[in-house]
Simulated scan of single mutants.
Amino acid sequence: MIQCPMRILFIGISLFLFVKCSFQASGNLSSYESYFPHENPNTIIGKGKIRATFLGTSSILLDDGETQILTDGFFSRPSLWKTAFSKIESDHLLIQSVLEKAKIYRLKGVFVCHSHYDHVMDAPYVAKFTNAKLYGSSSTMNVGIGAGLNQENMELFQLRKPIKLGKFSVTVLESKHTPPFKIFGKTNATDPNFPDITSPLSQPLKATEYIEGGTFDFLIQNGKHKILIKSSTNYVAGAYDRINVDVLFLGIAQLSLQPISFQESYYNETVQKLKPRLVVPIHWDNFFLPLAKPLEPNLKLGDDFDSNMNLLLQRTNKDQIQVQLLQGFESIDLF
């Protein structure tokens, strides 16, 4: 008679500890203090210079002093509970405050990596509020239409055809999404019967209504400088065989959760082939927390930031490649 309540108590305590542990950050940023720049350039961007500002997840602002381009622009960042249990929508006032704080006044293009909500949800509104053009897949175009964008403010991706915006040239490369995973029995894998968003989406929406619709990398050139932005932790074998870049923004989410053979191939097909002098990890932060607060690593529930970073640092140290981490709204001059 006593054993049953004790067993229930034990199960309850175990469940509580599991949940508490799962919802903690998967790493301690203080361990990587030397990889943060500790300064934010506020000077005018000099001729031939390019400044990068990290705005969380895979939202990266590039600015050469004349033209700005942005990937994704996911700023609303609804909470985990709201995302999991209700419909979500863009916070227009919050988006406008980020645009002001990040000094996004000369934006010409918003390039969406893929059409999951943590990449595409705010992108049409960023384009609308800045009079920039939204670039993306057919799925992204449908998100744009649902947000009220006009056709002249959107452009469908054409793979490997350079897009000229000021001195920037952006080439869209086909890629792959981070391998599917399950949390509490639910998966983010794309349903092969419904791989794209086929009709306009109007907010509010469930997060699951934002279908991937293809994943893309961006090769960006400005003068003699080359940058590659890869948001998702996956690769297309041989895609970078004849490409070298100066700077690589590299998605590291869930890297250490993949088989060792995948980890090695991912590094070899990206960092090793591109031969950058600088790698900036992205998509490492908990995007259920607001951008206004210091960024924290992804939750233990679905990631392991410390292991991801250790894997990357082991290889880049051996190859003598610099690694730089950025906090939210933190900027560095790349060149």
Rank of each mutant, 00 (worst) to 15 (best):
I321L: 10
V323Q: 06
A84S: 14
K186Y: 08
E33M: 06
Y240E: 12
P192K: 04
A147G: 03
L205D: 07
E89K: 08
A123D: 11
L156V: 03
F74T: 03
P192T: 04
E152H: 12
Q272L: 12
L80I: 14
R242M: 07
G27M: 03
E100H: 11
A239F: 02
S169R: 11
N193K: 08
N40E: 11
F10K: 15
S115D: 12
G223R: 08
M6E: 14
C113Q: 10
F329L: 11
L55Q: 09
N153D: 15
V172P: 04
F18W: 15
A189N: 05
N193W: 00
D118G: 00
R315W: 15
K230M: 15
T316D: 03
L99N: 04
T71E: 02
N317A: 10
N188Y: 00
K87E: 02
G46Y: 12
S58T: 04
L94A: 05
L156R: 10
K226D: 08
F218L: 07
T171Q: 07
I321M: 11
S307C: 01
K206N: 13
Q96C: 08
S137H: 02
P200Y: 05
D122H: 01
F194L: 12
K103S: 14
R7A: 14
P276D: 09
C21R: 12
S59L: 03
G136R: 01
E212Q: 13
P281N: 13
G185D: 03
K108R: 15
L278E: 14
P297I: 06
D333Y: 04
S14Q: 14
